[in-house]
Design a protein around this nucleic acid. Structure first.
Lengths: 226, 226
DNA sequence: ATAATAGTGTCTATAAGACACTATGAC
DNA sequence: GTCATAGTGTCTTATAGACACTATTAT
């Protein structure tokens, strides 16, 4: 009866909105095992490094995202002996994280600057995904969906300032539903500290929209319903 | 820059109600490191074993609980390099679980049959706790408190049949609040599949109480508020 | 003017909270 | 009868949902 000695990976389900669609960051594996398949950006823990440290390192190095614009949260750990089918002899335990990233200015995506590619979640799940990463993506997306209900984390998917419509579209996109604008506005504005009116406006095709920034509230009580 | 190779522990925050008080299972460490301090029941993963396997093994072997009467759920992983201060040279990553156990018949607790002791949560946190297990206990209790709000998991802390008052007392005990019996009854009975009336009754000091058993609903929508 | 987007007003339906009330047992 | 516990009825208040309406811009 031997005890396990394993390497630890920190894998990140990085989510971001692009063109009103939820995207996840994927990297194509350049080495065995699972060479050529798509996987979550991840890294092995170094000595003297926590899983959180490693995930933060991955976000800045591999995804090239500014750390302060990303909300990072532990998702779960995956330790099934068969999860890394290509290397049955060597166990890898993954501590998975969900990262909610601000919508990015166009040039930062898909350029050579980052090794990762942002892929719509639906399309990502239809690709050949390495290991158990398809399940981790599903778990991460489901976690994000749930968190929107009872936290204010939707703002983490938006830039510093945003309109009510922007915020509502985050919910509609992540949940795949449509929400009544009037009721949504009332709900958000009646939650103290959810958003703060900047006094600024954004002009576009129609009536100018008030610009808000995130307040310091974290919980939504009572929650929003999908 | 060396990669980490670590042993993996599965530690269990086992919660149960005794005398209208929330208890957590603790074991006193018999060996170094942290000899003599109190810790969560836990075990190292064996080769070919997942963290879930190891936690289930710990529940049956160390806590002597029948597996089907315990609801086991992953809590989080703890990987801070300094978390096991006594052995800085050897890293241990813990995958922590929350286990909700049925209230037990008296003889099963504190006897020689189990190596663990059930301790009221408050008292447990005032003892000398090994490693970062005090934090894990707090995280686990907080997770359980939150889960009661939007799931039907409260029934996992009760025996197979129970009265409305029993169920209400689970909430009151875990949350440390008091709930209006009339409103609580309406809320529970209006959630399809939360509880099922067995037709049986329990007789005691006052009017006999209807006995219920758990239904197959898992989510509570809208949630109950603390 | 028209289209487009932002935002308000208001009615209704649902559910929570407060709490007075009735019901059924042991003694 | 009293006490203890279980359970119901009902009024008030808060909020979600539906949806008609007004407001302000670009073109």
């Amino acid at each position: 009866m031997k005890l396990l000695n394993a390497r630890i990976a920190a894998d990140v389900v990085a989510l971001s909105l692009r063109n009103d669609e939820l995207h996840v960051a994927l990297t194509q594996r350049k080495n065995e095992p699972a060479k050529g398949l798509w996987s979550l950006p991840g890294t092995f823990l170094r000595e003297e490094e926590s899983a959180e440290d490693a995930a933060a390192r991955e976000i800045t190095e591999e995804l090239d995202l500014p750390r302060e614009q990303v909300r990072l949260e532990q998702l779960a750990s995956y330790s099934d002996p068969a999860r890394d089918a290509a290397t049955p002899s060597e166990r890898v335990l993954t501590v998975a994280f969900v990262a909610l990233a601000s919508a990015l200015p166009d040039p930062a995506v898909g350029t050579a600057a980052t090794a990762a590619e942002w892929v719509p979640v639906e399309e990502a799940l239809s690709r050949d995904i390495a290991f158990d990463h398809a399940r981790i993506i599903r778990d991460g997306v489901e976690r994000a969906r749930g968190k929107l209900e009872y936290t204010t984390q939707a703002v983490a998917l938006l830039p510093e300032t945003f309109t009510m419509s922007d915020l509502r579209r985050v919910y509609e996109t992540v949940w795949g539903t449509s929400l009544d604008a009037a009721n949504f506005n009332r709900k958000v504005l009646s939650t103290p500290g959810f958003v703060i009116d900047t006094g600024e406006q954004r002009r576009g095709r129609g009536r100018p929209a008030a610009l808000y920034r995130a307040g310091d509230a974290t919980r939504l009580n009572p929650p929003l319903h999908r």
